[in-house]
Design a protein around this nucleic acid. Structure first.
Lengths: 345, 345
DNA sequence: GTGAAAGCGCTAACAG
DNA sequence: CTGTTAGCGCTTTCAC
């Protein structure tokens, strides 16, 4: 039953009375080899289910056909989407993906980077942990001629191809939409000041208001530390306790928006009639909550695909090829948590 | 900057005036080699950052140190958890994981199985697609002496190690708890009859009622086809329209439970006071909805860990080692969607 | 057109 | 204790 001995080129050569090198070339349709030999070899190989020993091929070529992917957390819809995209694109080109988690810790990130380096991957895609502030552990890849591509969570000064989402435009679009619907007192629960995403989303929020001639009010801005549902609840409470409470709340992420919605529901404040709510990320969560949550979609799958495309290009064209910077758009998905307000005021 | 030539054993041997084999053995602290030689070699290797060429080692040993993991969908919290567990356990033992998705289609499953076979993985872990009814594509692994372990979605008749969750006990526990709290008219929105999980959960439901002397009522059982939130909504509506509506609903999965909760909320039916709700799976969703959802936790991470442990044992002990069957328990997590009912009736 | 031979880096059997 | 040798399966000069 079990085929102890996998068929090798040597076997085929022996059976066909050819040299190993001839068989090797025939299987690749090398121009030197005659049509008939090629045909004969291919037919024999086909018939006997010859499959090249990748271990030997890779060793010979000094390529693993493995690429490493370092992400903060696997169990997170956004990263799962990225992974999906990476795997798809990589597999389509004959590469495997080795997935590693940093758990948002720079120490873990360094550890897995080391492991990837030792396992001689052909390239690396990374979405940095929240803690990462310098990239010496990643520069080792460059030093070893292993290309790196950064995705989503990046450090600008680290010169590699980058694929990111246009947080600014997504936020701008979301807030502009709120204004168009008639919302005027728009609050923003934002993320920490040192996180680039948060700053970009804030910038989108601020500029959308400005462009529409709405003055930004300090008390409408809340800063979230952990981005949890509970924080959303707490800040919603604070916002609604203001002398002039907001009529819409734009949240830095869906989970926070859910907390906001929970508070509003508990207090009997109508969404979207009294207060409109918009999140960011487009988690599954937002589709099954009621009212369903309007949000800005982050194209995780496409990020993964694009990053892999850039990496494979780099692997095949050499380290000195240009470092592209790709920005994917994040678009608003309108659901039930916002609506056009009637004009009476 | 870039080290064109990675250090090899040959380099070390030349520099130290030793034979390659001596260096090789010294690095492994082979008992034949003298203390001082070992020390000298190791120090040299350390100092010059020698790292063995895995490509060569693997080729030589005819092992890839890759294991394949075939799962229905990556972007799904339960499977993400399994993957996490597999990666952790595999990496801890020097193995990489190649992740493949079947997208719940048997054709895709066959395709990726073929790919894994060709890439000569050392072993395979699989959670079958919903469509899979026979496993000829997996028997090829066995024929090639590549061990397979089944996890979660399995086919009993396929003789491999198996790791599954005790759906029956989880459901039994959940429904028994409802009874203890005072719920009596307990409905069950179940999954399709051909899905083993669904049947086991139904069995747990039925036996929990029986043991408590509660008669099972046909009209309290609904069969869900797609396990969507919408289906939960629709069946909740049907159930609550009965002459004697249920006072609790046990759902085959969390998403369905959310649909149920949405219906109840829209109709102003109090959860948990008027109707208790329990889901199954313990998705993140259940923690952020309000009231928070009681559910049965499926230990995905542990499933992945255990499956990998069994696979590595099989890889190292040989194909004829025993095929263990491990059943992990699924336990109830009590949250706000159920409560002890007051005794008045 | 085809074959012979070398060699990738490492391990292991066999000699000393 | 250490060195010599052979070989894993494949690709790739270099001959003929």
């Amino acid at each position: 039953m079990s085929e102890k001995h996998q068929l090798t080129l040597k076997d085929i050569a022996r059976e066909l009375g050819l040299a190993v090198s001839t068989v090797s070339r025939a299987l690749k349709s090398h121009p030197d080899i005659s049509e008939e030999t090629i045909k004969m070899v291919k037919e024999y190989a086909e018939k006997h289910h010859y499959v090249p020993n990748l271990l030997a091929v890779n060793f010979r070529k000094n390529k693993t056909y493995n690429i490493g992917l370092i992400i903060p957390e696997l169990v997170h819809q956004f990263f799962s989407s990225i992974i999906s995209g990476v795997i798809k694109e990589a597999n389509d080109h004959g590469y495997n993906v080795m997935i590693c988690q940093s758990n948002e810790h720079v120490d873990d990130e360094k550890k897995v980077a080391k492991a990837l380096l030792n396992s001689r991957v052909d390239g690396v895609i990374i979405s940095l942990s929240n803690e990462t502030e310098e990239v010496s552990h990643l520069e080792e890849f460059i030093a070893a001629d292993i290309p790196v591509v950064q995705v989503d969570k990046i450090i600008e000064s680290f010169d590699t191809p980058k694929v990111i989402v246009n947080d600014y435009a997504g936020a701008f679009q979301a807030v502009s939409h709120l204004v168009q619907l008639g919302y005027r007192r728009i609050a923003h629960i934002r993320g920490r000041m040192i996180v680039q995403h948060s700053n970009e989303r804030y910038r989108g929020y601020a500029e959308a208001l400005e462009k529409n001639g709405i003055h930004i009010q300090e008390e409408y801005i809340k800063i979230c530390d952990q981005l949890t549902e509970d924080e959303g609840y707490v800040y919603a409470e604070e916002l609604m306790a203001l002398p002039e409470p907001p009529d819409a709340i734009f949240c830095v992420t869906d989970l926070v928006a859910l907390g906001v919605m929970r508070y509003l529901r508990e207090k009997g404040i109508g969404v979207p009639d009294e207060v409109g709510v918009v999140g960011f990320s487009n988690w599954k969560l937002g589709e099954v909550v009621s009212p369903t949550l309007s949000t800005v979609h982050q194209p995780g799958y496409e990020l993964g695909e694009k990053a892999t495309e850039l990496l494979l290009a780099k692997i095949n064209k050499g380290m000195d090829s240009p470092n592209d910077r790709v920005v994917l758009s994040a678009d608003l998905i309108v659901r039930e948590s916002v609506k056009a307000l009637s004009l009476e005021k």
